[in-house]
Computed example of a mutant assay.
Amino acid sequence: MNIKIPFAFAILTAALMGCSSHQPKVEKIKPNPLPKLVQAKQLVPVFSTSVSATAENDPLRLQMATDNNMLFAVDPKGTVEAFQNNKRVWATQTTKKQGLSAGVVAGQGIVVAGNQKGELFGLDQQTGQIKWTSQLSAPIIAPSHIQLGRVITVSNDGNVYAHDAQTGQQLWVYHLPSVEFSLRGQAAPIALDPNNVLVATANGYVYGIDVITGVARLQRQVSVAEGRTDVARLNDVVGDPVMMGQFLVTAGYQGQLTVNDLEQQRVVWSQDVSSSKRPEVTQKAVYATTTDGKILAYDLITGEKLWENTQLLHRNLSNPVMLGSDLVVGDLDGVLNLVDPSTGNLIGRSKTKGDITSLRVIDGQLYVSTQKGALSVWQNR
């Protein structure tokens, strides 16, 4: 049996390890207060809308997407919306009884989202009409990926599906190795190269799968499990992996931040870093946020630690992203923290509403999603 546990529960369980029956209370760790900033930079909001909130202890992987000068958003109660020039163009209810739990992604004329029942929906970008629906074997809790006319989706039981982007026909399914105990989370598939998709798993491995045939071309371990208990051995790669040229960068929960050189088939470096978020990678550096709220920077080639910021400890940090020349990290209070990527110093902040669950940079703009359903787009001044 495959047991999925929410990330917040895993943290609490780990904190309880070693406590005796005479110590039943676990004091909640207070988040660090935000430090005062002098002449703080701010971001400029360019779009905002609101959708329904998700559960505080298990926020969903809901994100915005853009394609063909349109912006697409998803509501956890089941609606997919399209905006153009900040005006709603259409809104489509996918199902009446089952909300959406993952998405949205857009490309090749369609918009794709999935739900807890394992239903995958492909909608026409221009009209919002549901072009096709497909039933998968388990809940869909990570956004899909569109490549070479295929929609690649990972269900929560470890099956990787490919569907025809236009018709929804299932073309192949690849069965990943199952694990008995893992976080309730799943990294989204990404492009490994023009012909292959990369999928990270709960057992600390990544797989490169041919988009057309469904044949695995690559298998590599990127995180090693340690510890005596099931919780202590959790090393899920739930943060999306990142490709930078020939380098594959992954971060694992209670595992390692690892850079692999896929051309030379070797590990370039690995650091003990616990993270459930996608790292940010530039041509020179790797940036990561840890489960306890540190922001770390490492040299991409050598693995040398460049700096460490501990000012935002226990603030439930989001994935870091580069917006222009600034590194941006969201937190539990909806604060977008601007960081100098060369020093790690906090240099500015802006504010939205709710625990920030997803940051994406698309065409030089910052796309923000929060647990309370505040969706917004920002840019530098």
Rank of each mutant, 00 (worst) to 15 (best):
V231D: 05
V328Y: 15
L16T: 09
V222L: 09
D193C: 08
T258Q: 11
T310C: 08
M1W: 11
G114M: 06
D230N: 09
A91E: 12
V377N: 03
Q126H: 11
L313V: 11
K351R: 12
Q39W: 12
G208I: 03
L338D: 11
V44P: 11
Q116P: 04
I209A: 00
L327N: 08
A10P: 05
R278P: 06
Q98K: 12
A138F: 02
S318D: 13
D124Y: 00
N69F: 12
P76I: 03
M17S: 15
I3H: 12
S350C: 09
K294F: 12
E226G: 08
A113N: 02
N156L: 05
N380A: 09
G168L: 05
Q126K: 13
T167L: 13
S223E: 05
Q98L: 08
Q98W: 09
P33I: 06
I209C: 01
F247C: 12
N196L: 03
T291V: 10
L123E: 00
S52P: 06
L12R: 15
V111F: 01
G149W: 04
L359T: 01
P35A: 07
G114E: 01
T250H: 05
E56I: 11
Q108W: 03
L120R: 00
P279H: 02
Q135M: 07
N85M: 07
V259Y: 05
V215T: 12
G18K: 10
D326Q: 10
N309C: 10
T213I: 07
E56N: 13
Q147M: 14
H22E: 08
G122S: 01
D193F: 07
V44F: 14
Q98C: 08
K351N: 10
T127H: 05
S144F: 01
N345Q: 10
Q39D: 09
L176A: 01
F83V: 05
D75F: 06
G239I: 10
A202Q: 13
M17R: 15
M64D: 00
V151A: 04
Q186I: 08
P279A: 04
D299G: 04
V74L: 03
I209K: 02
Q256E: 14
I209N: 01
A53Y: 00
V238Q: 15
V105F: 02
L37P: 06
E27H: 09
A288V: 15
W269S: 05
K28F: 10
L120C: 05
K4C: 01
A40H: 14
G252R: 07
T357D: 04
T282D: 01
V89C: 11
G252N: 14
P279L: 02
G103R: 06
R217H: 15
D261G: 03
E27Q: 14
P177E: 00
S155E: 02
V361M: 01
V368L: 03
